[in-house]
């Protein structure tokens, strides 16, 4: 169960998130949509405390992951990030082999059993629907495969540390349509096991892959409901205007 309670976030004096409360349903896909700069990516990054890296960030309110406020004092951030995996906008594999990319998360978390690592790497690549394409080239550089494959490699890398939540920050925006549809199919598969939060600019994508959709505007959560409702009968006029493409 992950949830935000009265969450406010400031970059210096600029308020990027404004009193957001939202319960994300488990083992389903929740899409975060909204125009650029609306705070959806910022909101996504509060769940694994990725915003901590930006100087001058101040956060009020609570973010609950596994019944625990992640912003409480003494929280083990490295452990939190292991439980809350993340896939970024652009494929960002490490300058290592395909195998070592997936094994990385295990190694930094203290796994030394090579047999276990091998097994986990294979499972993760299978889950990310990449195994068949790379199983003969595991030693090859991760830079040698296509962008779409790299992004699935990044998903496999995130899955290898067995998170419960997967955050995806526009995971298909840098990919061609075929790679995009592969990623979408994959998301559909993954929601059976993981709670997925996905930021997207692409309205059709949100409609295709998500069960719930949250519409953000100017740092506020305008509307949050089942995807079907958001796209067909939104309560707020703003949402209506955005999903029908009248602004954004």
């Amino acid at each position: 169960m992950i949830e935000a309670k009265n969450l406010n976030l400031f970059y210096g004096t600029f308020q990027a998130l404004n009193d957001i409360s939202m319960k994300v349903p488990e083992k389903s896909v929740t899409a975060l949509i909204g125009p650029s700069g609306c705070g959806k990516s910022t909101f996504l990054r509060t769940f694994n405390r990725m915003n901590d890296l930006i100087p001058g960030v101040k956060i009020e309110g609570e973010v609950i992951v596994d019944d625990m406020n992640v912003y409480e004092k003494g929280v083990d951030v490295d452990n939190l990030r292991k439980r809350v995996g993340m896939v970024f906008q652009k494929p960002n594999p490490f300058a290592k082999s395909i195998f070592e990319n997936v094994a990385y998360g295990l190694r930094v978390n203290g796994v030394n059993d090579e047999k276990l690592i091998k097994q986990t790497v294979e499972e993760s690549l299978k889950q990310a629907a990449l195994w068949d394409e790379v199983k003969d080239n595991l030693k090859k550089s991760a830079y040698a495969i296509s962008g779409g494959q790299q992004q699935r490699l990044c998903i496999a890398r995130a899955l290898a540390v067995e998170p419960t939540v997967l955050l995806m920050d526009e995971p298909a925006s840098a990919l061609d349509p075929i790679s995009t549809s592969k990623i979408e199919e994959l998301i559909h598969e993954l929601k059976k096991k993981y709670t997925i939060l996905i930021v997207t600019h692409n309205m059709q994508q949100a409609a295709r892959v998500s069960d719930h959709t949250a519409f953000f505007y100017m740092g506020s959560l305008v509307e949050f409901d089942e995807t079907k409702t958001i796209f067909t009968h939104p309560v707020k006029q703003q949402t209506q205007n955005y999903v029908t493409g009248r602004f954004g």
């Binding site: 990725m50 490295d78 990030r81 993340m86 594999p93 490490f94 990385y104 998360g105 930094v108």
Partner: peptide, 27 residues
């Protein structure tokens, strides 16, 4: 070293020090 690569390492639960010597310095 690109920020995105360092972020990827941190997002996998690597500590800052692990990120420095496993990702940043090799890169």
């Amino acid at each position: 070293t690109p920020r995105s690569v360092k972020e990827a390492s941190l997002a996998l639960g690597a500590s800052q020090w692990q990120t420095i010597y496993r990702i940043t310095i090799p890169y």
